[in-house]
Amino acid sequence: MSAEFLQYLFTGITIGAIYALVGLGFSIIYNASHVINFAQGEFLMIGGMCTVALVGTGLPMPVAILAAVAVTAVAGLALQKFAVAPARNAEVVTIIIITIGASIFLRGLVQLVWGKEFHALPAFSGDEPITIGGATILPQSLWVLGITLVIVVALSWFFNKTLLGKAILATSHNPDAAKLMGINTGFILLISFGLSAMLGAIAGILVAPITLTSYDVGIMLGLKGFVAAVLGGLGSGAGAIAGGLILGIAEAMAAGYISSDYKDAVPFVIILAILFFMPSGLFGLRGTERV
């Protein structure tokens, strides 16, 4: 009984951490521009696919990972520079639609270059499951959890302690005032796209050994990550983490205790309930502006 519960919990936390990482990416761009970047899932996909392709050419794994993160960051910068920036005077909704277009474009591009097949990335430190109290967890899941934790700490330091991070937050709160204070808001937007692309790539590479990767892996993960971000309150880092974990654990528990046929419905019911009572999400503050 308790081993069973523990297994569901491990499963939930692993999936939840992935959703949380994706949700964080949404939050960064939202913070800087109030834009929801629906190409976030594609950053994940590019990170994973790129690593697979580079490992395939014989590069050692760590080099391939660094290169893949760099490629994805460039993709993020390019997305901002060539698709989002030219429309900077447009409304937020228009820019959101542009990101949807970009996500379709990126999927098509990867499909052309690397094909439609699924690919597997070898786990970072073996496939031997670790047994804890009768339940098992894969070493790769620990990697996911550990790196998620590191990223969360690093991001909170970045936003609260560094000038650049504070500039991003300032731009988010009031772009005009930020400009008057000498902040180059265009540059801030560029940086935030690059940063969130890097984050997406890291998430994509971390999960590739668990979920496998293909040109359309970003659709589902992107959507769940978005839900996690909304659940926790858009723009809030802690919110994205909490939202992701709640979503993942709810799914696993529903599959285990209720029925696997309804496992996708249960978390959505929870989300509706939470958003009904807390429209700005768990950690969102400015209720009237939020989803």
């Binding site: 069973e4 297994q7 499963t11 999936i15 599959a255 285990g256 696997s260 046929d261």
Partner: peptide, 20 residues
């Protein structure tokens, strides 16, 4: 009899149920 969605990324919950 358990099921999973075509895009699901983890089936340990369903399999734990089967195991038990």
């Amino acid at each position: 009899s358990e099921t999973y969605g075509p895009k699901d990324t983890d089936m340990t919950a369903q399999l734990t149920k089967i195991k038990n």
